[in-house]
Write a protein that binds this DNA or RNA. Structure first.
Length: 208
DNA sequence: AACGCTATCAACCGCTCTCGC
DNA sequence: AGCGAGAGCGGTTGATAGCGT
């Protein structure tokens, strides 16, 4: 009952620039994560959830806005094949992009079900960004040459190799059309890779 | 110019997860 | 072990800008 009252008193809808400023100051004072405190102390009459969302998607430093590049688009497609609708994980591999942005981009530009609706615009988007080779293969990624089983030299993108390595780790990788189950075997391995990357970028210091 | 339709994206909702007690 | 609070995530909604007729 009381919760409901509080909820109805909370302000909703679009954020004003002055609210953004207050929220930014509050996060600097109280720290990222204490959303209940921030909601209360800011006096914005916004829920903690709302504050968190606004910060995460728009106010956080290093947020990248604007059109997705062809590289980012391709990466989203491939990671979605690999991870399913795990937007935060996918966004985690796209510096400066948020899960909400990735999700919106997928739903509007890449999702087959929805893109039927947006076919006209989608075609325009493809035309405007027509950087594909005649075979439809994206060529921006750096490539590596590997020797296949039948001793042929195969040229692949670095990303292709990375995904194949992931699949080698996990022989039971489901097909892209099959929804993933909670106990997907490769997720912990993926987390390890992310952790390893963080180490190599010196984001985490090992304790020796 | 006016209207209707569509695409986009910011924000909300409800559920799950995690952590402290 | 069970419970509650808070945080995080993914799905969905709704406002609005832009386009076509």
């Amino acid at each position: 009952m009381k919760d409901k009252e509080v909820k109805t008193r909370m302000k909703r809808g679009f954020w004003k620039p002055e609210e953004d400023l207050i929220l930014k100051n509050c996060v600097e004072t109280h720290g990222e994560g204490n959303w209940a405190t921030i909601s209360e102390k800011s006096g914005l009459m916004r829920s903690g959830k709302s504050c968190r969302l606004r910060w995460k998607n728009y106010l956080r430093p290093n947020i990248k806005r604007g059109m997705m590049s062809e590289d980012e688009k391709d990466l989203i497609i491939r990671l979605h094949k690999l991870l399913g609708n795990r937007w935060s994980l996918i966004a985690g591999r796209l510096p400066g992009r948020t899960d909400n942005e990735v999700k919106n981009f997928w739903n509007t530009h890449l999702n087959n079900k929805r893109s039927c609706r947006s076919k006209k615009k989608h075609v325009k988007f493809e035309e405007a960004n027509n950087t594909h080779s005649p075979q439809g293969k994206i060529q921006e990624y750096p490539t590596v040459e590997t020797v296949s089983n039948n001793k042929e030299v195969v040229t692949k993108t670095v990303l292709d190799s990375w995904i194949e390595e992931m699949q080698d780790f996990n022989c039971s990788l489901p097909s892209p059309n099959v929804p993933f189950l909670e106990d997907e075997p490769f997720i912990p391995i993926l987390d390890d890779i992310l952790l390893l990357e963080a180490f190599t970028r010196n984001e985490i210091q090992p304790f020796l």
